Simulated scan of single mutants.
Amino acid sequence: MRHAGIDDFLRLARPALAAGPVAVIMAEDLVEVESTLQHHLAAGFRTLLLFAPQTLVLDPEIAAQVHRIDHPVREEHALVRAVNRLIPHAPPGTWFYYGYNAEYLFHPFCETRNVRELLAFHTEERRDAMLAYVVDLYAGDLDRFPNAVDRAGALMDRTGYYALARPGPEGHPKERQLDFFGGIRWRFEEHVPRARRKIDRVALFRSQPGLVLRDDFTFSAEEYNTYACPWHHSLTAAVASFRTAKALKSNPGSTYEIPTFLWHNSVAFEWSSQQLMTLGLMEPGQWF
């Protein structure tokens, strides 16, 4: 179903938010939109909302499975603002995922367990949010793929990830919160604004009254921003993303400065949860 804006969706199709988990996808451009939708439909989301420019044309079979919402996707913090519009209209406790086109959510054992099973276990663990690491994907041949997107030959960095303590209001480290860095945002940080260099994103969360998603992809409820509960390791997820590579190759200030993303620690992305867990980019916690 197509909606002429978020107000139209909330007026006509708000009950769809009750059929969670809900995936919210923001199509900033027309790159790999359908593959993104197919990936998240296959993951087991019951409701999928696509915020997209009016110029996007979808395959009718895919369009029939999503709520397509016309939206000014290039506005500053467009995805954050859209999510914050949705939260108050969803039943409390509804699980949401949010991300962009050419981004693909992975979770431990996703080849055999769907996202509904994942979130049911996480809820039983008394967790209301799940930290994800955004793993940069990129094409190896920028002459053939000038927008840096090559799903069949996607590469990623196998090393170079690290974390720093997240300072609180008085300068003391926040409990169970860290700022994570790595990938091509780290290797080409001179082209990335400081506020956008982190790769951590609280990408899965449960709605609750008064909850607000902040511009840095953390939440107003501080416990949502923790990587684990106080008593043991918790599940984490990963978002395999071409978004940074696309941006660096579309930005006139960086595209000519980056002839290749390849380096000695580039490896083929296997599109598997096991690879991400082996590299320490995803935590299975107590879920075996």
Rank of each mutant, 00 (worst) to 15 (best):
R201V: 05
E270K: 13
G280N: 13
P53N: 06
L155I: 01
L211T: 00
R14C: 03
V66N: 07
P21C: 09
L50R: 00
R46P: 10
V31C: 11
R166F: 08
L119E: 00
L131Q: 11
P259V: 03
E111K: 06
E125F: 04
L142W: 07
L155A: 03
A90G: 02
R74E: 08
A18M: 07
T159R: 05
W186D: 14
D29F: 01
R144T: 11
A132M: 00
G140P: 04
Q286Y: 13
F288P: 07
V135C: 01
Q54R: 15
V22A: 02
A154G: 10
R158Q: 11
A268T: 15
W271M: 11
G280T: 07
E124Q: 11
G99W: 02
F180G: 07
Y100I: 09
R46E: 13
G253L: 13
G5M: 09
W287Q: 08
V66S: 12
E34S: 02
Q177K: 03
A195I: 13
E117N: 00
E257I: 10
A18D: 12
E32Q: 13
Y227I: 12
G93D: 07
Y162V: 06
V57G: 10
R166Q: 15
L17F: 11
E223C: 09
Y162T: 04
F109G: 11
S35K: 09
P60E: 14
N251D: 14
N225Y: 09
V192G: 08
L12N: 10
E32I: 02
P167Y: 06
V33L: 04
A228Y: 03
G168V: 15
F45C: 06
E222Y: 11
N265M: 07
V134P: 00
L137V: 06
A221T: 12
L119M: 01
A132G: 13
H264C: 11
H40V: 04
F242K: 00
F145E: 13
S272R: 05
G210R: 05
L211P: 02
P21N: 07
K249S: 07
R243D: 08
E124F: 08
N265H: 14
R116C: 06
F219V: 14
D8C: 12
Y224L: 09
L56P: 01
L105F: 00
R176D: 06
Y227P: 05
R81Q: 12
I87S: 02
R144P: 08
V33T: 05
T36G: 04
L164S: 14
Y98V: 04
E223P: 06
I25Q: 04
Q54A: 15
V149C: 04
D70H: 05
H77L: 13
G280I: 05
A228V: 04
P21V: 03
L248N: 01
E34A: 02
G253M: 10
F205R: 01
M282Y: 05
R81M: 12
F96W: 06
Y133D: 10
Y138T: 05
A163I: 08
D141H: 07
L164R: 14
Y138C: 03
L178W: 10
F109N: 14
R11W: 08
L178Y: 10
A221W: 14
T244G: 02
Y161D: 01
T278R: 12
V135F: 02
P169D: 12
E75D: 15
I184W: 01
E270H: 10
M130I: 15
H67N: 03
L30V: 03
R85L: 13
A102M: 06
L12D: 13
L204M: 05
D70P: 02
A139H: 01
S207A: 15
